[in-house]
Design a protein around this nucleic acid. Structure first.
Lengths: 213, 213
DNA sequence: TGTACATCAGTGAACGCGCGTTCACTGATGTAC
DNA sequence: TGTACATCAGTGAACGCGCGTTCACTGATGTAC
C-alpha cells in the first residue's frame, strides 16, 4: 500500500471550498467586494446559506482566503516568469496581464484599503516574495549612476529586503519598478485613461525601461 | 436695496447640506465608502432618517456629490499651487499632503472602482483640469531627449489634451509625473510600505525629478 | 403693521429586503471490529 | 462480509439587524396683500 493521501472526504471538502471561492470571485468581479454575500453564493451553489459555515468560519474568513490566494497567485506568476528568464520589461507585461485578467482581484490586494482591516501576517510574507523576485531581477543589470539621496536613505532602511545582499541602488530600482508599474496599471484598470485613447502598455514599457535612468 | 443674494432658506439649505457631507466624510474616513449610511448620518445630525431626502435624492446622489467635491478640491489645490509658482517637485508634495490629509478621499477618486458605476461627466471634466495644470507645469521645462515610441504614439492620441498646443513629449512628461506620483502615493496610503521603514516622500521626490530623465 | 396663504423642513410609522449567523435536526458516508 | 457506531455535510426555521426609501402628517418660516 502506498501512503494514504487525502481521504475522499478531504478531497470533497477541498473541492467544495474551491467552488465557493470560484463563485465568490465571480461576485466580486461583478460588483466588487462589498457585494460579496454568503447567502448569494450558497444559492448559486444550490445549497442553503448555513451550509457554507462548514467551509468558512464566517464572511471575513472567506475574504481572507481570497486575499491569500490572490497574493499567492501573483507571487507564483512573477516567480515563474523570472525563473523562465523574463527581464524587467517582460515581468511588467506578465503582471499587467495577470491584473487585466481579473481587475478586481488586483484591487483586492492593491486597491483601496478598508480602514481598520488588517491583512493576516502571512500575506505580507507572500508580498515580500514578490519583492524578492523584483530585487533579483533588478540586480541582474549593473547599476551605473551615482548614489542618490534615496539610495543613501535606503542603506539605513533595508530590513524589509530580508537577508538580501543587494546594494541599496538595486532596492531602489525594485521599488521604482514596482511603483511605476502600479501607478500606470491601477489607473488603467480603474478606467482613468478611459477618455484618452493611448495604449497604457506602451507607457508602462517606457516607464520600466527608464527605471534608474 | 442691494440685490437679493441667497434667501435665508437657501443659506440654511446650503448649510445643512454641508453638515451632511461633513458627517459623510467622517464615516468614510472611519470605515470606507461601503459603510456610509444615510440613517447613521441623520442620527449624528440629530434628525430622523427621512429628513435627509430633503437634501439628497438618495444615497447615490450623496456619494456623487462627495466625489464631485473631492475632484473639485484637488483640482483647486493643484491649480492654486501652480499659480503660486510651484514646480513639479512642489506639486508632488502638495498632492501628497492633500491625499494624506484624508486618504479615503483620495481613494474615493483614484481607488478601487465599483464595477458598473460610472462617475458623472462633469467629474471627468474636472479631472482634465488637473491634467491641464500638469501639462502646463511640464511644459515649463524644456524637452531635451529624442522622441520615444510612446511620444510618437501620443502624437496620434492627444485629443484628451484638449486644445493644448503642448508637444507630445510634454504630454508624456505629464503622464509620467502623474502615474509615478500615484504609484508611490497610493501604495503608501494603502499601507503597503508599512513594514518597510523608508520615507516614501523621498522616493516621490526622486521619481518626479527623474521624469523624462 | 397685521392677516392669510403658500412653502417647505422635519417627523414617525411603516415597507420589504437581504444580510450574517445560531441552532437543533436528518441523513448519508466512512471507520472499526 | 456484515454489523454498530461515529463523523460530518447539509437543511430549514428562526434571530436580530440596519439598510434605503415611501408616505401622510405637523408645524414653523417666509411671502403677498
Amino acid at each position: 500500500m502506498t501512503d494514504a493521501g487525502p481521504s475522499s472526504r478531504e478531497r470533497y471538502r477541498a473541492q467544495v471550498r474551491a467552488e465557493i471561492k470560484q463563485h465568490a470571485w465571480e461576485q466580486i468581479a461583478e460588483a466588487g467586494v462589498p457585494a460579496l454575500s454568503l447567502n448569494a453564493i450558497a444559492k448559486k451553489l444550490g445549497m442553503s446559506g448555513p451550509a457554507l459555515y462548514r467551509y468558512f468560519a464566517n464572511r471575513d474568513d472567506l475574504v481572507t482566503a481570497l486575499i491569500r490566494d490572490a497574493y499567492r497567485s501573483i507571487a507564483d506568476t512573477v516567480r515563474a516568469a523570472h525563473d523562465g528568464g523574463a527581464d524587467l520589461a517582460a515581468l511588467a507585461r506578465v503582471v499587467r496581464d495577470w491584473a487585466r485578467q481579473d481587475p478586481q482581484r488586483y484591487f483586492l490586494i492593491y486597491g483601496t484599503p478598508v480602514p481598520g482591516y488588517h491583512a493576516p501576517d502571512d500575506t505580507t510574507a507572500i508580498s515580500h516574495e514578490v519583492m524578492a523576485v523584483l530585487i533579483e531581477a533588478c540586480g541582474a543589470q549593473p547599476a551605473e549612476a551615482a548614489a542618490t539621496p534615496f539610495d543613501t536613505h535606503l542603506e539605513d532602511h533595508r530590513e524589509w529586503a530580508g537577508d538580501h545582499p543587494a546594494p541599496a541602488a538595486v532596492l531602489h530600482r525594485a521599488l521604482a519598478f514596482w511603483t511605476r508599474l502600479h501607478g500606470v496599471l491601477s489607473l488603467e484598470l480603474a478606467g482613468h485613461f478611459a477618455g484618452m485613447r493611448f495604449d497604457p502598455g506602451l507607457l508602462i514599457d517606457e516607464e520600466v525601461a527608464a527605471v534608474r535612468g
